[in-house]
């Protein structure tokens, strides 16, 4: 049984997955109460699924990009749980979880997160057989820059704010937003990605897993 934890942004999510079925999943928007809400929700998930922590075989965690503090909260709990049960910790990039929610179609996809101060964290994906593959690294940008460089017909997924919806609607490049339900960053999808990595033996040392930050302290913001 794999436990998946995502606290990369204000939207947080917890799931339990056995390789085939989701036993529990909760996704909600927190008023920045990640530390208060995360572990009680995991306890509830285990109780609901009637599972003890010793039955866990792995922990998947959203690695970033995202809120620095949010990432460390999820990773802190994940490292604690993985250390407690001596089980693998599998980090998954946040925007890959967003892309995993979107049905595959023949166009480009841009997954976004809110990065604060009207900036976005964005990554471009292209269709590859049955899934989305990143075609560029994640970067910090703005809606204006993102839409300026977007190719016609590109779909946008993830945390699209009101400004984003308005600019997408006003664009003449046939850009569109993926529907809300298909763009929710769910720990169930994180669990599937992590399970795949775990089965492939792609396991990191607990201590070696660190968040992906996209910004270095002391460096001015772009």
């Amino acid at each position: 049984m794999l436990l998946a934890i995502d606290t990369a942004t204000r939207f947080m999510s917890v799931a339990l997955y056995d390789g085939r079925r989701l036993w529990f999943e909760a996704t909600w928007r927190t008023a920045n109460n990640h530390t208060i809400e995360l572990t009680p929700t995991i306890r509830q998930a285990l109780a609901q699924a009637q599972i003890t922590p010793s039955e866990l075989t792995g922990v998947g965690v959203s690695q970033g990009p995202g809120s620095f503090t949010g990432l460390r909260i999820g990773l802190g709990v994940a490292k604690g749980l993985a250390t407690a049960q001596n089980i693998p910790l599998i980090p998954i990039q946040t925007l890959a979880i967003v892309a995993a929610a979107v049905p595959v179609f023949d166009a480009h996809l841009v997954a976004v997160l809110q990065a604060g101060r009207r900036r976005l964290c964005a990554q471009q994906f292209t269709q590859e057989n049955t899934g989305w593959l990143p075609s560029a690294p994640a970067e910090i940008t703005t809606w204006a820059k993102l839409l300026d460089s977007a190719r016609a017909g590109t779909a946008f997924a993830g945390e699209i704010n009101d400004e984003g919806y308005e600019l997408l609607a006003a664009s003449e490049k046939q850009l569109h937003a993926v529907s809300g339900a298909q763009t929710l960053r769910r720990a169930g999808l994180l669990a599937e990605l992590a399970w795949e990595r775990m089965q492939a033996g792609d396991i990191s040392d607990i201590a070696a897993v660190t968040p992906i930050y996209l910004h270095q302290p002391g460096v001015p913001h772009p």
């Binding site: 530390t35 995360l38 572990t39 995991i42 306890r43 922590p53 866990l56 503090t69 460390r72 909260i73 999820g74 802190g76 709990v77 994940a78 490292k79 604690g80 749980l81 993985a82 250390t83 407690a84 049960q85």
Partner: peptide, 13 residues
């Protein structure tokens, strides 16, 4: 936050 959340993971686990 790092110590508290890690400790919670250990305690829960």
């Amino acid at each position: 936050l790092v110590g508290v959340n890690f400790a919670k993971g250990l305690a829960l686990g």
